[in-house]
Amino acid sequence: MAQKAHPIILRHNNNFFQGCTHWDEPRLYFILYTIQKLIESCCLGTTHYLNTIKVNQYLGLIFIDIDLIHLHFRSKRRLKSRRYKENQIINKKQSWTVVACRLQSAIKLIQKFTKTKKITLRINRIKIYTRSIPKPVRRQMSYFTKSFNHIKYDYARYGMQLMYLIIKNKASVTSLTRFLKQNLCSRQRRKRHYQFLAYVKQGFQALQEYKKIQGLKIQIKGRFTHKAKGRSRIWKYQMGQMPISQLNKTIQAQYEQTQTGYGSVGLKIWICK
C-alpha cells in the first residue's frame, strides 16, 4: 500500500518568497524559515496572530510584508473598576507596543545573519471585534462569553473572532493552528480539553451559514484526555467539502505537534478556499 502524500505537494501554491536572490537553495530555505519563526515569536503571548508573510530580496535589500490579526480579549463596554485602572500596567503586556518592540529587535537579528544593508518591514493589521460577529451567532455562544465563565472559558471571546475570520476567508490556516495549539498544550485544570473542543465545534456550527470557504477539516490525534493507560484519542470535525484528490482546488494544509499533560498530540488542519 502506497504512502499518502501531502495534500498540497502537487498543487500550485503561492510561496511566501518572491523575487531573485544570490543565496543558494539550502541557505534560502534556512533564511526563510528563520525569518518566519522570528516574526511568529514576536506575537507569542499577545493578542496578535501572524496571518501571512511574504519575503522579497533584491540587490542587497530585503522587503518583508506581513499581515497581523489583532484580536480583542475583553469587551470595551465592560465597566472598569478602580483596581483595574490601577493595574493597567499588567494588562498592557499584550498590547501592540510590545509587538512593535519585538519586531524592531527581530529586524536587527535578520540584518545580522543575512548580512544585508537594509530591511523594510510592512505591516498590515486586521482588527476585529466581537460586535462585528452576527447577532444570532453571539446569542448561541453567549454561555461561553458570560462574566461568570470568564476564567473557565478565557479563550471564548477572541476564539469566536478568529473562527469568524476563517469562515469569511480572511485568515489563513496558520492562525487557526496556533489558536488550537496554545489551548491544547495547556496543563491547567480550567482549560479542559473536551470543553475546549466542544466550544470549537459549536462555534463553527453556529457560523456555518455565513461561510465563504468550500470546506474545513480538523483532526486531532494523541493523548489529550485523562483516559486509562494513556490511550490516544481521535477528534475530527469537518464542515463542507474537502476534495483533497482534486488538484485544481486551492487547499491550505498544516501539520503541527504539541505536548499536553498526558502526552504528545498531533494537529492536522485543511482549509479549502
Results as ranks from 00 to 15, higher is better:
Met1Gln: 07
Ala5Lys: 09
His6Val: 10
Ile9Lys: 12
Ile9Cys: 01
Phe16Ser: 05
Gln18Ile: 13
Gly19Glu: 01
Cys20Ala: 12
Leu28Val: 02
Tyr29Leu: 14
Tyr29Gln: 13
Phe30Gly: 13
Ile31Arg: 01
Leu32Asp: 10
Leu32Val: 10
Ile35Pro: 06
Ile39Arg: 04
Glu40Arg: 05
Cys42Lys: 02
Cys42His: 02
Gly45Ile: 00
Thr47Tyr: 04
His48Ala: 14
His48Asn: 13
Leu50Pro: 09
Asn51Ile: 03
Lys54Ala: 09
Asn56Gln: 14
Gln57Gly: 13
Leu61Met: 15
Ile62Met: 05
Phe63Glu: 15
Phe63Val: 14
Leu68Arg: 09
Leu68Phe: 03
Ile69Thr: 00
His70Glu: 13
Arg74Val: 13
Arg77Ser: 15
Ser81Ile: 03
Tyr84Phe: 13
Tyr84His: 15
Lys85Leu: 14
Asn87Met: 06
Asn91Gly: 14
Trp96Leu: 15
Thr97Tyr: 14
Ala100Lys: 11
Ala100Asn: 12
Leu103Glu: 06
Ala106Tyr: 10
Ile107Cys: 08
Ile110Asp: 07
Gln111Glu: 15
Phe113Pro: 06
Lys117Ala: 15
Lys117Ser: 14
Ile119Tyr: 06
Leu121Arg: 01
Ile123Gln: 01
Asn124Phe: 15
Arg125Trp: 04
Arg125Ala: 13
Arg125Met: 10
Ile126Asp: 04
Tyr129Lys: 13
Lys135His: 14
Arg138Met: 15
Arg139Lys: 13
Ser147Leu: 12
Phe148Asp: 07
Asn149Tyr: 05
Asn149Pro: 00
Asp154Leu: 13
Tyr155Asp: 03
Ala156Trp: 04
Tyr158Thr: 04
Tyr158Leu: 09
Gly159Val: 02
Gln161Ala: 07
Gln161Ser: 11
Leu162Trp: 03
Lys168Trp: 01
Val173Met: 07
Val173Pro: 02
Thr174Ile: 05
Ser175Pro: 10
Leu176Glu: 03
Arg178Ile: 08
Arg178His: 11
Leu180Trp: 05
Leu180Met: 00
Lys181Gln: 07
Asn183Ala: 06
Asn183Tyr: 13
Leu184Phe: 02
Leu184Cys: 06
Cys185Gln: 06
Ser186Met: 02
Ser186Arg: 03
Arg187Asp: 14
Lys201Trp: 06
Gly203Trp: 05
Glu209Gln: 15
Glu209Gly: 15
Tyr210Asn: 08
Leu216Tyr: 01
Gln219Arg: 13
Gln219Asp: 10
Lys221Pro: 04
Lys221Asp: 14
Thr225Gly: 11
Thr225Pro: 01
Lys227Ile: 12
Lys227Arg: 12
Lys229Phe: 00
Gly230Met: 00
Arg231Phe: 11
Arg233Leu: 11
Trp235Asp: 09
Lys236Ser: 01
Lys236His: 05
Tyr237Pro: 05
Gln238Ser: 02
Gln238Ile: 07
Met239Ala: 10
Met239Thr: 03
Met242Leu: 04
Pro243Arg: 08
Ile244Thr: 08
Gln246Arg: 00
Asn248Gln: 11
Lys249Glu: 07
Lys249Trp: 04
Thr250Ser: 12
Gln252Lys: 03
Glu256Thr: 05
Gly266Thr: 03
Ile269Gly: 00
Ile269Asn: 09
Trp270Gln: 02
Ile271Gly: 09
Lys273Ser: 12
Lys273Ala: 11
